[in-house]
């Protein structure tokens, strides 16, 4: 996946979140057949979001089938991502090229999975499995957020999906972490004044996300010494230890590394983080 400019990335996310919202609506009611034949450009974060959105609907009687993109690169990306491990295909699937994309899912915080994903991604590029402490921190923080905040109170824990893509051309490992849970802004705890500003429309969720990253919004637990995960991810991004950090949650799109925070016209169902690490 070539790195896109922040503007191009943000513009492409608007229709994607709308598409995912429509899919969720229809999958709740009907059997779906996804016609992906016209897809010419596909990224691992979009596939991860697609899988997280639709997998809850793959049980009988609702099921989802997908067709293959005609575009060779998009087809390779979709097949290699393991998309068809979750969905039936309406046509024969070509063999998966190994060594480029790895995907895991769980409802728990799984340190061993975080380690394995990182080692796999780095080994795919450098030939040697190695650790990357910043990527490990981000993965564990993401798993914790999903475990603790993504589900409605009393509901079963949400599933998270983590996808690792080894971009050999740029010598970068690209991570996508996604859940289709409540999303950051339906689970945060705001001070009364911030809540009023938000309700009156004076304070957007995009501005609140920026405050959260700066550690200015208290944890949803209300305990002062908690809620340090997002600020620590922000510091890693600011320090250059992770690259190209993007956060999409509810109606917010943030290209954190580029300092771009936007309100989406169509909200994303859940939370998605994307980041990259250099492999030397």
């Amino acid at each position: 996946m070539a790195r896109r400019t922040p503007d191009a990335q943000e513009n492409s996310k608007q229709p994607t979140t709308g598409f995912l919202g429509n899919l969720h609506f229809y999958a709740n009611r009907y059997n779906l057949t996804l016609d992906l034949s016209g897809v010419t450009y596909l990224t691992t974060d979009a596939i991860a979001a697609l899988v997280a959105t639709l997998v809850p609907f793959t049980r009988i009687p609702v099921f989802v089938r997908g067709s293959l993109p005609k575009d060779a690169a998009a087809q390779t990306m979709l097949v290699g991502s393991g998309f068809f491990d979750h969905f039936r295909s309406v046509q024969p699937i070509p063999p998966k090229l190994s060594g480029q994309i790895q995907q895991e899912r769980s409802r728990k915080v799984q340190p061993d999975v975080a380690r394995d994903l990182i080692h796999w991604g780095i080994k795919s590029i450098s030939g040697k499995a190695m650790k990357c402490t910043p990527a490990y921190r981000v993965l564990i923080e993401c798993m914790l957020n999903t475990h603790n905040h993504a589900a409605k109170e009393g509901a079963r824990r949400e599933t998270w999906w983590a996808t690792v893509y080894a971009d050999h051309g740029r010598k970068r490992v690209c991570f996508t972490f996604v859940d289709a849970g409540l999303g950051i802004f339906r689970s945060i705890r705001l001070r009364r004044l911030q809540m009023i500003y938000r309700r009156l429309g004076f304070r957007t969720d995009a501005a609140i996300l920026r405050d959260m990253l700066l550690g200015k919004v208290e944890s949803s637990t209300g305990i002062s010494y908690r809620g340090k995960g997002l600020p620590s991810i922000y510091k890693l991004s600011q320090g250059g230890m992770i690259k190209s950090l993007v956060i999409i949650a509810n109606d917010v799109y943030a290209d954190v590394s580029a300092g771009v925070y936007k309100t989406l016209s169509v909200a994303f169902r859940g939370t998605l983080l994307y980041w990259e690490i250099d492999v030397h």
């Binding site: 921190r137 564990i140 923080e141």
Partner: peptide
């Protein structure tokens, strides 16, 4: 170690 989450 492989790294640490803030929570740990």
């Amino acid at each position: 170690t492989e790294g640490y989450a803030t929570s740990f």
